[in-house]
């Protein structure tokens, strides 16, 4: 074996060592996780994602939502995520079991969304009464972000269709606040993508208990 042969073996070894340690072993540790049964309610945790939410996860990825929003709660020693009430416990591998892209994110220009669908205080101010976000408020944020006070969210109005009302209104039209209403005789209808995205966002709820993620009292 000449000098290049030895060099090649070394190059291969450097790659294979890291591949075994950081891909193969993790695959064995977190690649075969199963949902766990909740002993009180009998629910499976994490709950399966609906087909619509699964599609919404792709819309989320394709529109780069992850470039501003994370979906991961760090442990209490790893940041103020829990203190901000973004979550009640650290998120763990099992939480993302059903997602083809976990959309973990790497920037927090917007708040963390790991528990958007749970009973929670307002995400932006982390105060106020606990309540669930509803689909209408999310649609309003995406279609006309300026109508939501204090928001610097970009507009995703291309996910909505504005059309003439022919006959009876469809009933699916967005109800927009004063100053942002659509013209007379028109309504704004969310596209399938918009509905899927909202269904996905409302499905984000990692408040159930898992043994590997103890909740500190």
């Amino acid at each position: 074996m000449n000098g290049y042969g030895r060099l090649f073996v070394g190059i291969l070894a450097a790659f294979v060592l890291s591949w075994v340690a950081l891909i193969l072993v993790p695959l064995n540790q977190v690649g075969n996780l199963m949902p766990l049964e909740d002993q009180v309610t009998g629910d499976m945790n994490p709950p399966a994602l609906s087909g619509l939410a699964q599609r919404g996860s792709k819309v989320y990825a394709a529109n780069g939502c992850a470039s501003c929003h994370t979906q991961q709660i760090r442990s209490e020693s790893g940041g103020a995520d829990i203190a901000r009430q973004w979550g009640t416990r650290q998120t763990v591998a099992r939480d993302y079991l059903h997602q083809s892209n976990p959309n973990l994110g790497a920037m927090r220009l917007g708040p963390d969304l790991a528990n958007l669908g749970a009973d929670r205080p307002d995400l932006n101010t982390n105060s106020g009464p606990k309540k669930k976000y509803d689909a209408a408020s999310l649609h309003q944020l995406f279609y006309a972000p300026k109508s939501v006070s204090g928001s610097s969210h970009p507009s995703y109005s291309f996910l909505y269709e504005k059309r003439e009302i022919k006959g009876i209104p469809s009933g699916m039209g967005l109800s927009l606040p004063v100053g942002f209403e659509t013209e007379e005789g028109k309504e704004v209808i969310p596209s399938e993508d918009a509905k899927a995205l909202v269904a996905y966002l409302l499905s984000l709820n990692r408040t159930y208990a898992l043994p590997e993620a103890p909740v500190k009292p």
């Binding site: 977190v30 690649g31 993302y96």
Partner: peptide, 8 residues
């Protein structure tokens, strides 16, 4: 594989 593996 679904879940965190793709992210890892």
């Amino acid at each position: 594989v679904f879940g965190v593996m793709p992210a890892l």
